[in-house]
Amino acid sequence: MNLGAIARHRLFWPLVALVLLLVASALKSPAFLEVTVRDGHLFGGPVDILRRSSVLLLVALGMTLVIATRGIDLSVGAVMAIAGAVALSQIAASPDPGALSTVLLAMATALAVALAVGVFNGFLVAVVGIQPIVATLIFMTAGRGIAMLITGGQITTVTSAPYKTIASGYWLGLPVAALIAAFVFGVTALLTRRTALGVLIESVGINPSASRLAGVRARTIIWTVYVICAAFACIAGFIKSSDIMAADSNNAGLFIELDAILAVVIGGTSLAGGKFSLTGTLVGSLVITTLTLSITILGIPVNAVSLFKALVVIAVCLLQSPVVQHRMRSRRRRVAPVPVEVPA
């Protein structure tokens, strides 16, 4: 593979961005890239990035699958809020909040509720045929109301050691949250690439009517991805609420759908559906998380993060836009009269 081919790789620019962010942070704060062992746990900038990116990665993974089918799921943030609300109010109401069984039962209930939301979204999109953006807008709006209904408008706080482990615990020296995200990433990769699910999702995303005529259960597949997406958002909701040990229905996962979509797009999956890349989404999530972290390190006000996100979105979109790509390709052709490879 020559340099040109590397530069044309989908993930080249996102990875460059990631490295630049890390280098910039390290220059400003040399200790940033150091990883130390404290109490048998790993600490340091990179570990922190992994831990913090887990929530975004989980949501973005589900979003990748949904986007691959030409869809979009705006309700993920609301699902996170609902998941936290259901789990924490159940734990708070139980006589023994510290028991593992209580926590597991609460999480199972929350997961069931989240799955129901996913089934609802999937039903509207796959069966009723409503545009995904509208169908999921319904729960984006109503979901936080429901979460507040569950918590009675309060920010429910609990003390429960097992639940706290989800976000703050360590296992084998690594943060549990990162491990959960890694596990889900692995399962998703296996599920899509070791079975035929991945190729069928792509086929439905590229050409829904041809897929149906080829005998693909397009409806079931579309339905499934919304359920998967809600399930992953639910797990992300657990991590988020465990992080602060409170269910904040107003702010849990606020705007995460936008960050997740951004992560997917940075990772090279087109919003028009079709081919998707889970690795790309992983890189995208890391870029966004690192961006947020680096900005604090570089001494820029945290609130300005969205300004940088905007610049990243615009840069990525411009690089991917057909017009610019066409320009760049024709310039390349003019410089070197070598036949340009057909982009795969």
């Binding site: 936008l258 969205s306 300004l307 905007a310 610049l311 979109c317």
Partner: peptide
């Protein structure tokens, strides 16, 4: 996506 970018930009 374009208006999403504009949203981030304006908020920033």
């Amino acid at each position: 996506i374009a208006t999403l970018a504009a949203m981030f930009l304006a908020r920033g």
